[in-house]
C-alpha cells in the first residue's frame, strides 16, 4: 500500500529535519548527540509536540539525573514521524510514547486489541534500531466524553448506551478522528454509532473541545483520559467494552545503543511508579490554573519518588 512508502520517505525526512534542527541550533549539548554509543553522559530525552509528552520527557530526564546519570531534554521535536526518525538515527536517545499509537504507526491495526496483545505485537513490529522498555500502568487514551447532564438525560455509562442517540448528536474531535480506525469508522463497526455531524477541532481535546461540549455546540467529544478538565467540569467518560480505542500505556521508546543498563533500570522504575492519576495531576499543574513548567512539575514528582 502506498502509505508505507510515504512513511518511509517521511521517516528519513524526519531524521533529516531532526539533524538539521541540531545543526541549526548548534547548542543545548547537541554536540555529543550524533556520535553517542552506550555513553550515559549523552542521554537526550526527546518529546513530541504536545504537553503531556514534554512532561513525561522531563520526568525521564529528571529521574535519570536523580540517579546521577546525566540527561537533558529536547522538547517538542514534532510529530511521531520526526521523533521516531530522531530515535532511529540516535540523535535522540529516548522519547516517551504510547503503546497503542506506536503499534498503530508501524502496523495498520484494525481489530480491537487488549493491552497484552498490543505489548505482544509491538516489539515484533519495531525497526531494528529501536526498542521499547517496560510499559507503565499510566495510560492516556482517547475516550468519548459527554456532560453530566447528557449522561443523566440518556442514562449513558458506555458507548453501547450512546449508540441509540448517536444519530442526534454532533461529535467534536481532532481531524484525524474522521478517518482513523478507532474514530468514526470504528464507532460505526464496533457500536453502530454514526453521529449526525462531525466537528473537527484541532486542539487535541483541549480547551476549545471542552468549551464546545459545555456550551452544547457538540454533544459528545473525543478527549484524552488524562485531561484535567474532565474532573473539573464533571464530565462523564463513556466506557469502551468493545476496546474500540486501543490501550495507550506510557512507555519509553529508545535507541538500542543509547542507554546503559543503569539508565534502563531507572526508566523502568519510572514506568512502574507512574500512574494515570499522576499523569492527570501533572497535566493539571502544567495546563491548569497553576501553569507550572513541565520541568518544575517533573522535578516535584521525581522528588516524591526515589531513583538514586
Amino acid at each position: 500500500m502506498f502509505t508505507r512508502i510515504t512513511r518511509r520517505g517521511m521517516l528519513s525526512a524526519g531524521a533529516l529535519a531532526a539533524a538539521s534542527t541540531l545543526v541549526l541550533t548548534g547548542c543545548g549539548g547537541g554536540e555529543d548527540a550524533l556520535d553517542e554509543g552506550g555513553d550515559d553522559r549523552s542521554i537526550v530525552v526527546g518529546s513530541a509536540d504536545f504537553t503531556e509528552s514534554q512532561i513525561i520527557a522531563a520526568v525521564y530526564a529528571e529521574a535519570l539525573n536523580d540517579a546521577d546519570i546525566s540527561a537533558e531534554t529536547r522538547p517538542a521535536i514534532g510529530a511521531r514521524e520526526a521523533y521516531v526518525g530522531a530515535v532511529k538515527d540516535g540523535s535522540v536517545s529516548v522519547v516517551p510514547d504510547y503503546s497503542g499509537n506506536l503499534l498503530q504507526y508501524y502496523d495498520e491495526v484494525t481489530a480491537p486489541l487488549t493491552e497484552d496483545e498490543v505489548m505482544e505485537y509491538l516489539p515484533q513490529n519495531l525497526p531494528e534500531e529501536v526498542e521499547v522498555l517496560d510499559a507503565s500502568p499510566a495510560e492516556n487514551k482517547d475516550a468519548l466524553v459527554v456532560t453530566r447532564d447528557t449522561a443523566d438525560e440518556h442514562e449513558l455509562t458506555s458507548i453501547e448506551d450512546l449508540a441509540a442517540f448517536c444519530s442526534e448528536m454532533t461529535l467534536g474531535a481532532p481531524p484525524e478522528f474522521q478517518e482513523r480506525s478507532y474514530g468514526l469508522p470504528g464507532l460505526k463497526s464496533n457500536y453502530g454509532c454514526e453521529p449526525a455531524e462531525f466537528s473537527p477541532i484541532n486542539d487535541a481535546g483541549g480547551p476549545l473541545t471542552v468549551q464546545a461540549l459545555l456550551d452544547d455546540t457538540v454533544q459528545v467529544a473525543d478527549i484524552f483520559t488524562t485531561t484535567p478538565a474532565i474532573k473539573q467540569n464533571d464530565l462523564v467518560v463513556l466506557e469502551d467494552p468493545e476496546n474500540n480505542f486501543l490501550p495507550q500505556h506510557v512507555l519509553p521508546l529508545a535507541n538500542k545503543d543509547a542507554l546503559s543498563q543503569d539508565a534502563r533500570d531507572v526508566l523502568n522504575k519510572v514506568s512502574a511508579e507512574l500512574t494515570t492519576d499522576d499523569l492527570i495531576a501533572l497535566n493539571d499543574r502544567v495546563s491548569g490554573d497553576e501553569k507550572a513548567s513541565p520541568e518544575q512539575a517533573a522535578k516535584d514528582w521525581v522528588a516524591d519518588h526515589d531513583f538514586s
Binding site: T51, A76, G78, A204, G206, P207, L208, V286, S287, K291
Partner: peptide, 20 residues
C-alpha cells in the same frame, strides 16, 4: 504544520488554554 518558530507559542498556548 509543525515547523517551530514563535508561532509554536500560538499552537501550544491554544492546546494548553494559556492566553498569556
Amino acid at each position: 504544520i509543525g515547523i517551530q518558530s514563535l508561532g509554536t507559542l500560538f499552537t501550544d498556548g491554544l492546546r494548553r488554554d494559556l492566553m498569556a
